[in-house]
Design a protein around this nucleic acid. Structure first.
Lengths: 334, 334
DNA sequence: GGTAATTTTGAAAACGGTTTCAAATATTTG
DNA sequence: CAAATATTTGAAACCGTTTTCAAAATTACC
């Protein structure tokens, strides 16, 4: 448990002042090659590692960017996190995660911790934290949001072409001959959920099909809720040949529900999800879904934040969505 | 972009010294109720948040514990991360993640960052970092490992009853009448993989069944490798009625492979996994598997580390495994 | 060889907290 | 009421780094 060496230790060993050590550490100004070498040797010898905490205090920059997430456990946030990490790689900034667990109090606490740790920037993944607070934070440190909208900070929010994605998905079903297409929607307070539902209705109406409210059931983006929503749908007794789920997780739940009822996918019922999570390639059968690359969103969020930190505009691109046709959709049985 | 207020600002506003402000902040010693109230009011008024970086430097404790993980994206590590977070909750310590991506260089870099940030403790999740290094680190700061073994630091590693778990799994298959049971193993350098394979062979021999090397194929714990391994297995032409996979992810891949070949689960082939990831409840059909709660492991790792930080022995429990019988296993067809 | 311009260096202050120590104030006690 | 004790307080040092500033050493020039 011997103390870690400090710049002073290095300085003493290399017969220079701490200032000089700092200079070779940061490269902030020229130092004589001989001394520089001596310092480097001393660093090597004592296996010195500069204390980033002290450096942060001195510099007034922590070189960490806070990521306010909701769950460390879900595939969705995991991919996002990975993307952010990739986007930050090589920038010198490190990401620190804190989760809100979809609970206001936890979210507030997580945010407080991040801010107290003097993060240099913040990426907000989903969540319910009030817009007004986030706007205030953005006055202090740069902020980017993914998977949520912040009134008045639109250029700081990653936008996904939700409506166009679901339009394509439903259009695909229609092209396969489906006419009675159900929709399991997401939480209505969630902008993404609304936009996806809009794409659904637009696809129907643009094809001259009526929107039947009894074919729309609300879920909450979990597998469990997908399964439940399917039960509700079946209980209503309305006929349908295809289901468009507002996300992949609900599609998984629906898939299980159909299996339980002995309904085959895609023979009896076609199924389409939204997200294209990593796991969707390995469902049986592989899930037809709308890809919105979470990895890409994470990367873009990180890059946008880096731009903000460099005093440039965030320049966030709109995330395109793309229908990935796998094996849960088939031509409706004649 | 106004500067954050500091203790001095509070002190000035409350007509006390910075020392007194610090005292009410930490509660380290009594202060007169009147002054205390004044300080608290000033804190409220300026919306003051103590700078944790400065505090860390002063205290010599960062109150952060580093978590060296391999991937932010996989379900497996996600659940582990969540468990650690839960175990740390309320302790005052915060977890900071850095991932090694199963690459020595990245892992080294991630570790360096964490150490440079003066983490007070370290949790290592899997990975390849040399035992000798980890032993050295453990001399400086407390360390706990999950999902890996460290020679000489056995009491700091979470142990899972792998062999007993796979024994039960294979025993279950035998009880269902299966006699030709294949095994898709994990990376052989991985202790867990070995132990799981050992449980498999023990279950077979204890039932008087021969171990057929041609029914054992090596995978690398990914879905992809599971699918590939199944292809290899089928190509060998040996007959089998059940497959025991060394983890759930490979089981997913195998499931897809079987689907592609038109082999029904569990009617034609029974399938058992290992881990019981969250998603295994929603595969079709739901996967019979051996549960080793990753959440629990994360929690225990966190608690063990907290004990180490309190100078107590880690007292890590052995993680029990439990067969969860769902719907991918059935009595062998007569 | 002496002066001017340049490079290289170290002392000291700063970052924002906590803590030690001794002084000042308040409370008991005889 | 004085002395002894207990409580509350602020000045100053410290944590480990960076940076400013001016001094010292080196190099260039006439």
């Amino acid at each position: 448990m011997s103390k870690q060496p400090t710049v002073s230790d290095i300085a003493r060993l290399a017969h220079v002042s701490p200032s000089t050590v700092s200079r070779v550490l940061t490269g902030s100004s020229r130092v004589h090659p001989a001394k520089s070498a001596a310092v480097r040797a001393a660093i090597e010898q004592l296996n010195f590692r500069p204390n980033l905490t002290a450096r942060a205090l001195s510099l007034g920059k922590s070189m960490v960017i806070g990521i306010l997430t909701q769950s460390m456990m879900s595939q969705f946030y995991g991919e996002l996190a990975q993307g952010i990490e990739e986007g930050l790689a090589g920038s010198g900034y490190q990401g620190v995660f804190a989760s809100g667990h979809w609970e206001s109090l936890d979210e507030q606490a997580a945010l407080d911790i991040l801010l107290a740790r003097q993060v240099d920037g913040l990426i907000v993944l989903g969540g319910y934290h009030p817009d007004i607070d986030l706007r205030a934070i953005n006055k202090q440190i740069p902020l980017i949001a993914v998977g949520r909208h912040i009134e008045g900070l639109e250029e700081h929010c990653i936008r996904v072409e939700n409506a166009s994605g679901s339009f394509q998905a439903v259009r695909h079903l229609i092209d396969l001959g489906h006419r009675r297409i159900a929709h399991i929607s997401g939480i209505p307070s969630h902008l993404d959920a609304c936009e996806r539902q809009r794409g659904y209705t637009e696809a129907l109406t643009s094809a001259g099909l009526a929107v039947d409210e009894r074919l729309i059931v609300e879920g909450n983006f979990t597998e469990q809720s997908g399964l439940l929503a399917l039960e509700t749908l079946l209980a209503r007794g309305s006929h349908f040949t295809a289901i468009f789920a507002a996300n992949d997780q609900m599609a998984y739940g629906i898939r299980l529900g159909l299996y339980r009822r002995g309904l085959r996918v895609p023979d009896d019922i076609s199924l389409v999800g939204f997200d294209d999570l990593l796991g969707s390639v390995y469902t049986t059968p592989p899930l037809t879904t709308v890809r919105q690359s979470m990895l890409e969103q994470g990367r873009q969020a990180a890059c946008g934040l880096l731009r903000l930190l460099a005093n440039e505009p965030p320049a966030l691109p709109s995330i395109t969505t793309e229908l990935v046709i796998r094996e849960t959709t088939a031509r409706v049985r004649g």
